[in-house]
Design a protein around this nucleic acid. Structure first.
Length: 939
RNA sequence: AGGCACGUAGCUCAGGUGGUUAGAGUACUACCUUGACAUGGUAGGGGUCGCUGGUUCGAGUCCAGUCGUGCCUACCA
């Protein structure tokens, strides 16, 4: 419905045409979505992240901004390639045999079919993106942006190609950036093997400790620390590499830690980044011993060739043992880097890769840092830390799916097949289009680089490229820089920092003003949700529901160690499956649980307990109002009423509370502080509107006086309309539906008066203006507090004597201040109803209070309840004594404080006055209570 | 190894710039079902604010230390 009516459109549509003049005059508010992977399926993290964005964009839209939320997906190089590869595997097709072009075609086919799923899921969640502007990182325009960026950075010397040690994933057979490698805290169980390397001159041996014996075939030296006296005389000597019998030198290098292992380090430059550095310092040629898939290559002795690295390790150890060269096998936790995608242990591999020189880019971003508002603020530190210790970014990936690097090699000699060899001939040519001939030698046989770019390279341009950059489109002119980025903390480096770099470098501006980092969604035990643990909660299950079987499915798939237990619990908790609670309940629950930006624990139950409960309550409140409106309609008294003339205190009160709620909600949105947002909503809807206001209105709704009834209905419906407006950004579906119901209903019965909403669609209504509370409203609030306390006091007392509600009581009340006086004069009927008092007498004079009554002494009023028949004198004495005791303690502490000269001298005069006032009021109350105690003794 | 956060009621969490007797939701207990809602209402019990010191007239709040938990970065042949 919203989409059909163009509710998600900004002032300029996707074609660049101004479609809304009025909005066009307003300030833009722009969010570009963190593009989910095109292979992605909605998970709780997405649900939370996008709920925040939708809330903000809806709020700003209602608040009159020209709001634009740009959606899209990213091509997720390795992930997508893997998905399609597996699909082809299942069909018995080997993607390598298929060839690059055919494979890419297959991926596009797949994307056409399934690539839109996650966006549809977002729409289901209620996301009010401008779907006409949906982008994909491999779109033509966005690809052009990538090529242009690459070319420019290369020309500026900020992109270079070089032979480096990179993180290599042997499963996906590609390089990975440092950020794509994760190391488990504390390492993983492994061994440190101590191996004898014999001197070449046969005079003895050294012992080298290593965790990776299979790489010894790539050793080019043994290094010791020059300060290590144990080994100084060794430097310059030669040793024999075991298993291969190659002769290598002993060298001295500061890097070696004397205290670690034996103090002797084998140097394998092709398989370790530190060794690579040491190797190049000593001008030692690296020796690569593995294929791309981490099988041993032909450099190693024949018996090891073609073996997987781990099998080779086992065989090598066996052989070393046999030869007596293995001195010690020491158990040890070793750090193992793993690909964040394939989870395979990464191999360090020496290869030609493309890099971005990050330091100059980072420096520019640091200069602009004061213009960036990161919320919560503490993430500034993390972000700055990374920028200060920046390392170059390896952007080439040896896969097929992605933006192929716009670099070309001159292939003069057809026999030179590898690109390394080509490069030796002529330097690579970087160009936006395929060059016709080599500018260096004129050769026309040119081939494009086979590597593609890291997906994050295109993502780093996202806020710009989605708006048309590098073209100067109307979109880019008006909507860039964007306003707010909502994302997760774990991609601050991957994404946020890099977007900032690109944007500042190319446009001179940061791509957004605010970065809000949303909390992390965890399961009920506080563990991260993951497929492998089977503890994830599918947002769509929460929305639509699921059978018990489907609930079990992810757990069965993951097979965690406590699977039986989990399954049992599911069977017990959801024997009939899980009944869907809808998108609004999902959204409400997630936001309600979002505390100050830490973590957020959810279970399936929490969606029922928090979200669904709240939606039901709201729904029932609406039902109540609509029911009475219908009834009124049947009565058919068509009197036209000046609603303002008959407005009551409670009407004024609820309108004031609505205003306060709107103010608070605004504050939450404006400050990106959602800590208490859910509670503000809850308190206003549940406590203010339902518990008190609706209850109070009942008196008038059942009255015989049409004016009273209609006035109550008018205020009920107008206050409820405000409630829907305030709630709409968080729970758009239900509020929109109720809006469409109450509008015509109010019209039919002429209940709106001058407060008739001007928009038929709630989403297009204006949010409630921020306004301070006027003095008279403050007075109303105070009176109401008095009323609440009055009623509660009576209820409490009644409970303490087990007097049923059905039993009406008679009471005398005496007012001590203006609020209470007003209350007793105006609201006797409501008080009587809420407190179940049949007969309330207002005392003009305190002395007129009746005997044999139980008293409530309050600072604003005194109530005397005629309950003597229920009262046990001893019990009442005890009650009073207890209260007196409590009060007395308090008075003593107040006294002590006020008698302390330092307090009176140092504390602010206001505080002192407050304490004095409190003391005298409490003393007075104490006196009264003591009097009551004496009185009761004579019952 | 360094950094960041957190530790308040059984559980999940609120508690700007220090100021009466520390709050909410949930769970628990008791009572209440003919008209919005039992997915409800009313009321009640429940906390030495991790621990130890310090600053202060006054500390859940500020400082130092300590213990515990979680996360991040780096690194360990």
């Amino acid at each position: 419905m919203w989409r059909e009516k163009g509710c998600f459109q900004s002032a300029i549509n996707s074609q660049g045409v101004v479609v809304d003049e009025k909005k066009h005059g307003k300030n833009p508010y722009v969010i570009s979505i963190p593009p989910p992977n095109v292979t992605g399926r909605l998970h709780m993290g997405h649900a939370l992240n996008n709920t925040f964005q939708d809330m903000l964009i809806r709020y700003k839209r209602m608040d009159g901004y020209d709001a634009l939320w740009v959606p899209g997906t990213d091509h997720a190089g390795i992930a997508t390639q893997t998905v399609v590869k597996k699909m082809l595997d299942a069909e018995g097709i080997d993607y390598r045999e298929l060839g690059r072009e055919k494979f890419i075609e297959k991926i596009w086919e797949w994307k056409q079919k399934f690539g839109g799923i996650i966006l549809q899921q977002l729409e289901k969640l209620g996301c009010s993106c401008d779907w006409d502007r949906t982008r994909f990182t491999m779109d033509e325009g966005l690809s052009k942006a990538v090529v242009k960026t690459f070319k420019t950075l290369f020309d500026e010397g900020l992109i270079y190609r070089g032979k480096r040690i990179v993180n290599w994933c042997p499963v996906d057979r590609t390089a990975l950036s440092d950020d794509e490698v994760e190391t488990k805290e504390g390492g993983e169980p492994g061994f440190l093997w101590h191996i004898k390397y014999l001197y070449a001159d046969g005079t003895g041996h050294v012992v080298v400790a290593t965790t990776r014996p299979e790489t010894l075939f790539g050793d080019v030296a043994v290094a010791v620390n020059p300060k290590d006296e144990r080994y100084t005389k060794l430097v310059g000597k030669n040793v024999i590499l075991p298993l291969q019998e190659r002769v290598i030198p002993v060298i001295a290098d500061e890097y070696v830690d004397m205290a670690f292992g034996t103090g002797c380090l084998k140097i394998t430059p092709a398989h370790d980044p530190n060794d690579f550095e040491i190797g190049s310092r000593h001008k030692l040629e690296p020796i690569n011993v593995m294929h791309e898939d981490a099988r041993m290559n032909d450099v190693v002795p024949e018996r090891y060739r073609g073996l997987d690295r781990y099998i080779c390790r086992e065989k090598a150890i066996e052989e070393l043992k046999k030869k007596g060269l293995l001195v010690l096998e020491e158990e040890r936790m070793t750090p193992i880097g793993r690909s964040y995608r394939s989870k395979a242990a990464i191999e360090y591999r020496l290869s030609d890769q493309w890099f971005v020189k990050m330091k100059p880019l980072a420096e520019k971003v640091l200069e602009k840092h004061s213009e960036l508002n990161i919320v919560p603020q503490r993430w500034n530190k993390v972000y700055l830390e990374w920028l200060h210790n920046i390392r170059d970014w390896c952007i080439s990936r040896q896969i097929w799916w992605g933006h192929r690097i716009p670099a070309y090699y001159c292939v003069r000699d057809q026999s030179l097949k590898t690109k390394d060899q080509c490069q030796e001939a002529c330097p690579p040519i970087v160009s936006e289009t395929m060059p016709e001939k080599c500018p260096h030698c004129g050769n026309t046989n040119i081939e494009q680089e086979t590597d593609v770019l890291d997906t994050w390279f295109s993502s780093s341009l996202w806020p710009m490229s989605t708006l048309g950059w590098p073209e100067e489109t109307p979109d880019f002119e008006r909507y860039f820089p964007t306003t707010t980025l909502v994302t997760a903390k774990d991609i601050i480096f991957f994404w946020v920092a890099r977007m900032n770099m690109m944007s500042v470098h190319f446009t001179g501006k940061l791509p957004f003003k605010n970065v809000f980092l949303n909390p992390v969604v965890l399961d009920e035990k506080g563990e991260t949700m993951s497929k492998s643990k089977g503890n994830g909660i599918d947002p769509l299950v929460v929305i639509n529901g699921s059978t018990l079987e489907d609930l079990k499915h992810p757990v069965m798939e993951a097979r965690p160690s406590n699977m039986k237990e989990i399954i049992k619990r599911l069977e017990k908790t959801f024997p009939e499956g899980f009944e869907g609670v809808g998108a609004d309940a999902l959204r409400y629950t997630l936001i309600y649980l979002s505390s100050s930006g830490q973590q957020l624990k959810v279970s399936l139950n929490s969606f029922q307990d928090l979200g669904r409960r709240f939606m039901t309550k709201l729904w029932n409140a609406a039902r109540f109002i609509m029911m009475y409106v219908e009834q009124e309609n049947e009565k058919g008294d068509s009197v036209s009423i000046d609603f303002t003339a008959h407005i009551t205190d409670e009407d004024k009160w609820i309108h004031t509370r609505a205003q306060l709620a709107a103010n608070k909600v605004r504050e939450c949105f404006d400050n990106h502080d959602f800590t208490n947002l859910g509670q503000h909503y809850y308190q206003y809807v549940w406590n203010d509107f339902c518990d008190w206001y609706i209850e109070l209105c009942k008196v008038r709704l059942i009255s015989d006086d049409a004016v009273q009834r209609k006035t109550a209905l008018h205020n009920l419906i107008t206050a409820f309309a405000k409630t829907l407006i305030i709630l709409h950004p968080l729970i758009p579906h239900i509020t929109e539906e109720l809006w469409s119901k109450i509008l015509p209903l109010g019209d039919k019965n002429e209940l709106w008066g001058s407060a008739r909403p001007t928009t038929e669609i709630l989403m297009q209504a204006s949010f409630i203006e921020k306004r301070d509370i006027a003095f008279e409203e403050q007075v109303i609030l105070e009176r109401f507090e008095c009323l609440k306390e009055f009623v509660s006091d009576v209820r409490t007392l009644r409970k303490s004597y087990n007097i049923k509600e059905a039993q009406n009581l008679s009471a005398h009340a005496y007012a001590l201040d203006d609020a209470a006086k007003h209350l007793l004069a105006q609201s006797q009927a409501t008080i009587s109803r809420l407190a179940h008092i049949s007969d309330l007498t207002v005392l003009k004079n305190r002395d007129e209070k009746p005997g044999r009554t139980v008293a409530i002494i309050h600072k604003s009023y005194e109530i005397y309840l005629d309950v003597s028949e229920y009262v046990d004198v001893e019990k009442e004495k005890a009650r009073l004594s207890k209260e007196i005791q409590k009060l007395d303690n308090h008075i003593v502490s107040l006294n002590k404080r006020l008698q302390n000269r330092s307090f009176v001298e140092n504390a602010s005069s206001e505080v002192v006055a407050e304490q004095r006032e409190s003391l005298s009021a409490n003393k007075e109350k104490l006196q009264k209570l003591e009097q009551l105690l004496t009185d009761i003794a004579s019952w």
